[in-house]
Design a protein around this nucleic acid. Structure first.
Length: 550
DNA sequence: CTAGGGTTAG
């Protein structure tokens, strides 16, 4: 019987000591307990001769299988090395698990190779204990000169995914991603299975892309196709998604309604409405029945591309053919009609939906309020806003944003500001877009500093509109109020901040357009708003005001 | 439980 004997023993031990063999983890009573006495654990020294004479040989990496010759003589019938069961016994999840592993390895002068670690992680007993697996993985990486390989990561992720330990999977995956391993087919297949099962699309797509860079022939389980296609569709990569659809069909994997719907929606959202309809027809030709959601994305896409009459045809088709229409259908139609200036029809749908037994949600109210506000019917918009409250539908930050913009458009500034305050009082968290509506309105009504003060109040609420100054300066420039725009830019300088290049460009263009080409040139070639000294601390900066005051 | 769909403005 073959023994899992570290090679260096035969090379370095005295003949007499070797006679004490057989030696194995199963029989460790004889020689090994004496070893420390014969050769004490060496202290490190820079003198190679000392190492040679006084120390034990370096620990040997052990592999999960005894010998390569096993593999040659009886492939498929490999016996794991006895070390495997020894290590497995130590993986008990106890407090001193790591310490026990350390002393065991020290005692037997072994180190566990990445292959070994990976093999152990694949053993069923351990796969049921993700905590222990994770600790073992972390412990292994602390061995001297040890480096995890792709396979160890893959095995651990497989183990963690079985118990849906999402946080740890992410942690381990982030680590893996930084390593830059070359992806293997087996690694990719395992990872895709893990991520597919957990619905981790980003991670799955990463593996898939990594794989495409190298080889082909990767086995994607059917569910993972859906995740990959869905992930690509969400990123707006419908063409790539379509390619995956074709490859899944080629592999004999049948796409379902959900996969087609995701693709149709993605095409519809990226101004390829005709492609979306083509795919919709192809899906029907294959015998798949589009459902509520499929029709929903078709109607929504048609509405967004202004093809309202077609949208209404599909809508009527649904109603006549037992496909339930929901509030989403209505909100899309109301929004589309409103944006096309067909407000009366939008109102009809709004009234009709409740009669047909469909409850209005905030999207429906918001769409109609927006339609009314945009065509100057701000009072009617306010009436619907009030109705929304009366009818028990919660107003959202979108509702307020629409109303605030509408009020400013009609120069009803005080009412707009009042609504902002009501929104805050109601505990509705503002968004960057809602602040944009407010700040632009304030700037154009000459209340730039008030906008800045409100902006300062947002930070403690965790709302940081990144383009706030840019939006405000842009609004002022567009209104031809360059002096005020410059003053606002100086406000940023006063706060000790650098003026972003985008804002400089904005002001340069505004100056050019307003016939101040010379000032535009001056700004372009100056360091107005910029200025750090060599140590990176703030230098006195030139203010924008000098441009318009000179 | 059951892969897929939603709003502000530019």
């Amino acid at each position: 019987m073959k023994r899992a004997l570290p090679r260096h023993f035969s090379a370095t031990l005295l003949q007499s000591q070797r006679k004490l063999l057989p030696f194995s983890p199963h029989n460790n009573g004889g020689l090994l307990q004496k070893l420390p006495k014969i050769c004490p654990i060496p202290s490190f020294t820079s003198n190679p001769r000392r190492v040679f004479t006084n120390s034990l040989p370096p620990p040997e990496w052990i592999e999960p299988f005894n010998d390569v010759s096993d593999l040659l003589s009886s492939p498929g019938n490999l016996n794991p090395s006895p070390w495997v069961s020894q290590i497995l016994n130590l993986l008990d999840g106890s407090m001193d698990m790591e310490a026990n592993l350390d002393s065991f390895c020290q005692k037997f002068l072994i180190k566990l190779s990445p292959n070994f670690v990976s093999f152990v992680l694949r053993i069923n007993d351990l796969r049921k204990k993700p905590d222990v697996a994770f600790r073992f993985f972390a412990w292994a990486s602390k061995q001297k000169k040890y480096a995890h390989r792709l396979e160890t990561y893959v095995s651990l992720i497989d183990c963690l995914s079985l118990s849906s330990d999402l946080d740890r999977v992410r942690l381990v995956f982030n680590d893996l991603r930084q390593k830059g391993f070359l992806m293997t087919v087996s690694g990719a297949n395992s990872l895709i299975k893990s991520f597919g099962g957990l619905g981790m699309v980003e991670e799955l797509l990463w593996v898939w892309r990594r794989m495409k860079e190298n080889e082909k022939g990767i086995e994607i389980p059917p569910h993972a196709y859906g995740l990959v296609i869905g992930g690509l569709c969400k990123e707006g990569k419908c063409m790539e998604g379509y390619t995956v659809l074709e490859s899944m069909i080629k592999k004999g994997c049948k796409p379902n309604v959900a996969i087609y719907t995701a693709l149709i929606d993605s095409y519809a959202k990226h101004s390829s409405m005709n492609e979306a309809i083509n795919l919709f027809e192809r899906m029907k030709n294959k015998g798949l029945e589009p459902d509520q959601v499929t029709y929903g994305v078709i109607v929504s896409g048609l509405c967004k591309s202004g093809r309202l009459d077609e949208a209404m045809e599909y809508f009527e088709f649904c109603r006549g053919n037992g496909i339930a229409v929901n509030a989403m259908f209505y909100s899309n139609l109301i929004d589309g009609l409103g944006k096309a200036g067909r407000v009366d029809e939008a109102e009809e749908f709004f009234e009709e939906m409740v009669e047909k037994g469909c409850t209005r949600d905030s999207y429906c109210y918001n769409a109609l309020i927006d339609a009314l506000a945009k065509c100057g019917k701000i009072d009617e918009a306010l009436a619907v806003f009030k109705r929304m409250e009366d009818e028990g539908c919660d107003q959202t930050v979108y509702t307020y944003t629409i109303i605030i913009s509408g009020l400013f458009r009609e120069h009803r500034n005080e009412e707009a500001i009042k609504l902002w305050d009501i929104m805050i009082d109601k505990g509705i968290t503002p968004t960057a877009a809602s602040f944009r509506a407010l700040s632009i309105g304030l700037c154009l009504s000459g209340k730039v500093s008030r906008a800045c003060r409100i902006l300062d109040d947002l930070a403690p609420m965790g709302v940081i509109p990144e383009t706030a100054f840019e939006d405000m300066i842009n609004a002022l420039c567009k209104a031809g109020r360059i002096k005020e725009a410059c003053k606002l830019a100086d406000g940023i300088v006063d706060r000790g901040r650098e003026i972003p290049g985008r804002i400089r460009t904005l002001l340069i263009n505004a100056l050019r357009k307003s016939g101040n080409a010379d000032l535009a040139m001056k700004l372009m070639h100056s360091k107005i708003g910029i200025g750090y000294n060599r140590m990176g601390s703030i230098k006195k900066r030139v203010k924008f005001r000098v441009l318009v005051e000179s």
